[in-house]
Design a protein around this nucleic acid. Structure first.
Lengths: 195, 195
DNA sequence: CCACTGATTTGAACACCGTTCAGAATATGA
DNA sequence: TCATATTCTGAACGGTGTTCAAATCAGTGG
């Protein structure tokens, strides 16, 4: 009922689950996983330390929810890009660039999305959207190198994914170079694979 | 003096620094960085919780020493491989495979070597051997694609490095496939870059 | 309208963590 | 031998995640 109102009382202030998620994202992007703590999230939401447990179970549950959201957004962005009319190769490059863009927009969230040891592997949203994001890249690669065998197409897609991930996480150079390096890398790999 | 003897007394048992390093490596490979704790390392060395601080300052210092050791070993392995007589391309592939091998041999150590937020960036050993490892790959790439511009050679080397890193850390497939995928990826990227 | 039920949040407790610091134990060297 | 420096201990402090009974609130059936 009273959704947007500020009339949250001490208990039951409407949508604590969502609020905790927002603060968790903010804290992650602010201080990274090292500076992250469940108590600090609770503190930022002006709530007792034990409050999150009811919504997420434990800290792993909260991080998993954040990561699942991240993959969901990534898939949404991928699908938006794929609706545009472009050459197959440019589609692949666009996905790779989106990957980097996603990281820059929310580095803290991004950095946990692929840390399996931090996440709950039973989460449904995660198990739906994480494979889906890879699948979208695989499909694009199929169109970009249609003459390759299906196995090789998957092969190349995984290599592309790994390359993007490495470039983004290793930070071998400042982020200005990163965008151009990503596009170059994608084209180089496609070229090598198409021979 | 009394080096190899088991006659370690309560205090001053010879080479606590080295022993702590060994236990830290063991614990990292055993439980990963998530299960790692300075107190557990001290416990495994049968020493008080505060003992490590004298040798490493704090937990960051200990992890940095572990990582620095890791890079030193990686560089040593690279140099051994580079002394063998092979084609330039095979040299590059060999380095990439060594990268993967290193990860498999000591995944816990490997996983912290590139987590800059966990390490002390003032460490001399680290600042010597980490750039050196990349430099060795760059040099190999120069030989493999001699006709490319120096900039592009560095470019390609960094892409290769990122790809290996992504393949190893993302674990997109079981580790049996990994070795062959790494070699394929290296050749694909070199081929694409040589066009 | 009200009592009841279930969902939500609190507050206190527990064990563990990293770090600090005074002081004890040992090693070193004059 | 004795003074000094090095190395380690033990206790303490504040912070963390998690658990659990108790307190609070929302909604429903009577």
């Amino acid at each position: 009922m009273k959704r947007d109102e500020t009339e949250r009382t001490a208990y039951h202030h409407g949508d604590l689950r969502r609020e905790l998620l927002l603060h968790a994202v903010e804290l992650l992007d602010d201080r990274g996983i090292e500076g992250f703590s469940l108590r600090e999230v609770a503190r930022r939401a002006s709530v007792a330390p034990a409050a999150p447990s009811h919504h997420f179970g434990n800290v792993t549950g909260l991080l998993t929810a954040v990561a699942a959201d991240g993959f969901q957004r990534l898939v949404a962005e991928f699908e938006t890009l794929l609706r545009k009319k472009r050459s197959p190769e440019r589609h692949v490059v666009a996905l790779c660039e989106a990957y980097v863009k996603h990281h820059r927009a929310s580095p803290g969230v991004f950095s946990i999305m692929f840390r399996r040891e931090l996440l709950d592997d039973g989460n449904e949203t995660l198990n739906e959207f994480k494979p889906k994001s890879l699948q979208l890249l695989i499909d694009s690669v199929r169109n970009a190198i249609p003459d390759a065998t299906p196995d090789k197409q998957v092969h190349v897609a995984k290599i592309l994914w790994a390359t993007m991930h490495g470039l983004v996480t290793l930070r071998l150079d400042d982020s200005d170079e990163l965008s151009s390096r990503v596009a170059f890398a994608a084209r180089t790999i496609l070229a090598g694979a198409a021979r």
